[in-house]
Write a protein that binds this DNA or RNA. Sequence first.
RNA 1: GCCGGAGUGGCGGAACUGGCAGACGCACCGGACUCAAAAUCCGGCGUUGGCGACAACGUGCGGGUUCGAUCCCCGCCUCCGGCACCA
Length: 840
Amino acid sequence: MANPYPAAVERYDADAIERRWQAVWAAERAFETPNPENPATDTRPRAYVLEMLPYPSGDLHMGHVTNYTMGDVVSHFRRRTGFQVLHPMGYDSFGLPAENAAIKTGGKPAEVTARNIARIREQMLRMGWSIDWSRELSTSDPAYYRWTQWIFLRMYERGLAYKKGAAVKWCPQDQTVLANEQVVDGRCERCGSEVEARDLEQWFLRITDYADRLLDDMALLEEWPDRVLTMQRNWIGRSHGAEVQFGIVGGDEAIPVFTTRPDTLFGATFFVLAPEHPMVGDLVAGTAQEDEAMEYVRRRGAESVADRMREDRPKTGVDTGRRVLNPVTNEEIPVWVSDYVLVEYGTGAIMAVPAHDDRDHAFAQAFGLPIRQVVAPREGAVDVQVEAYVDSGDDSVLVNSGRFDGLTVAEAKEAIPAWLAEDGRGERTTAYRLRDWLVSRQRYWGAPIPIVDCPACGLVAVPDEDLPVRLPEIDDYAPKGRSPLAAAENWRRVPCPSCGAEALRETDTMDTFVDSSWYYLRYVSALDDTQVFDRGAVDWWLPVGQYIGGVEHAILHLLYSRFFTKVLYDAGYVGFQEPFANLFTQGMIYKDGAKMSKSKGNVVAPDEIVSRFGADALRMYVLFMGPPDQDKEWSDSGVLGPARFLDRLWKSVQAIAETPGEALPPAPADADGAALDLLRLTHRSTQRVTEDIDRRLQFNTAIAATMELLNGIEKARDGLLGDAVGQQALRHAAGTLVCLIQPFSPHIAEELWERLGGTRLWEAPWPAVDPALLVSDTFECVVQVNGKLRERVPMARGLDQAEVLAAAKALPRIAELIDGKAIVKEIVVPDKLVNIVVKG
RNA sequence: GCCGGAGUGGCGGAACUGGCAGACGCACCGGACUCAAAAUCCGGCGUUGGCGACAACGUGCGGGUUCGAUCCCCGCCUCCGGCACCA
């Protein structure tokens, strides 16, 4: 690849300076923050700043660099504005890549993982992030997964973890089942293989019990991005409606359906079961349609998940020949089987109202079924034979619906279920798109599920004191359709914890998303081997004050973590219901218009940039590229901007450091002219940087403000070096600038601070803004005529409107423009602008 | 189809509450330094017209509100992300 950088850039010695300060920070344990001794009475301000923990895949990539640098800026800023800061780091180290690498190279997943962690940790240290390394954790460490298992058992006790047979999604490539959340467009989110449906006994977590709270508590998440909340809302998919019973003609049973449109019940002209509906077999048994119907069911079952999810597939189906009774019209309507009804949603059966549902309409047209209108617009007419009429509000009324005729749709949605409920024909209910979370995996490198299967007692929890259930040492990690743990016979055979008889361990391991659903709690007590975490400390630090990570985790990780926190709250282990008070989702970094990836060959390695320009320049550039929440395009030449800035900073501050004085002397009170201008610029810049970090997380504009300050210092420098006041003003400006860039580029800031005469900038207070230096006594008044900018003129602040207007009209150019014309209106915005509206 | 976000110079972007559009940086152009180049420093840089002061136009498109709109409202277009046979 061609070198995109100039051959000889004049540089300060970034490598030496950065390594020097990294050694100082490590030696002084600069960023370790102990838990409070008395959390109950400790009122110190605190900030838990957390970035999503990395999967240690080997090399740090630009996404990590951006993510952790953003968190680091916030951490430094909080530390220097008087907060106790918790800023830990760990590794999401269970998972398939390490296992697959071990299979390929013949090593052990634990060894591969240890190597990768060592490597990524070294790269993190080289970036100079201010992490409390004393709290470092790995989810694959038995000291950690012991507590993952412990939490699983708490869920099991509460009935929130259960095992059942179900049609599940199976990835043939990875040889394991997947959670619904891990299937994207019918494919495995990890490897892209088309997933298959399989009937298997699997472990689930009952996240659906929390669907309402996961939705309703979003009100507490004011500082979360809308898009993330929307994605979670869509994913949970709560629909209010009614469950209605349809009695089988010639039988005693009824089949329930779920509908969001009980108002259209009078228009239900047929009935449809999902092919997998458990009653299909019984219904058709012995009828003329039995063979045809069962053949249809078999064919659907053989289809891939991806095929069934294909959009715009034509409607297919079979008439069972059986009939059910429409509970409001008492008409007999035919029961069909069709794959446009999904077994896993609602009740797996629907009432079909072709006049008012597009899908039912298409089905009715394909099979010549009757279409009956029961809703009409208040004004005008629609032809439901041609197209379904869908309106669910107040603009339509019921027709052909007996005593409900004339009600609005909204009214009928209340009235009809209430009427049905009187004699048990139906009731109001709610349906969700969310399914329970399938957590068992048929792979080796994960936390073993701490359950023993006893022939006498059934499923028995491993006692807490026997945790962790450690992964056994085995030779063959290759997936074979069952967990590799099943081959570890000696490990697997254990006495039943309950009765002592010979029993077998569960051999599936947990989804790695279980590991990462609670790690933010463990940092509080990372080294504690007596409890999962300390209740007092966890309530002191959490909820996380600022969580930062990629939007790709909007549903999986963030929803699961919210679920875990609520479960732990209910069980009395934590005192808060939401884990992350503020969430910030960073944009992705692209190169040549595409996501960086090895296969595309467009990866820019952080290492290369660090060795060429230093960690400080890279840190600054990833933040300077653009708004932190938006996607950004990497530019090889763009990184030169911050690199040059740091070079100029180095030279300028060194020159000023040669004058006598403190690292950050107060602003000289008797400054005027250029010195006063510089002081004002300094305080304006401080104000902007402070607000941009604190209030807006707008690091790109904060950095721009520091660049403007340096430009101002360089312009003023030669003129101010001559006298004492000028030198003090320069030192004040330079010291402030070094303070302001410290969160972004801490190494060079520390070095320059020392050369200016300071020590330990990371502990120095954040520079204060002097309000008196934010304003000057004059301002540049903008003068408009008819809204068009015509003049700019300096004016004293605080003049009254008449004075400002008179001054504006006295300007020769303005006088000329309004001469001989009628003044229609005059607007004066105090200390800002004048607009004179004329006519003629 | 539904939901969310975005559209500003050659490029990344700024303009925070309706008040100077283009901060800051990249690229580019000119100059200084140099035997020369790189680096560095100084200057220029939305488009069109003008030697120039300046003028007209300009924030995806079309309307509207307003003294004044990148910002608010209505109607479109395009792009990105999520959900989607969810009854």
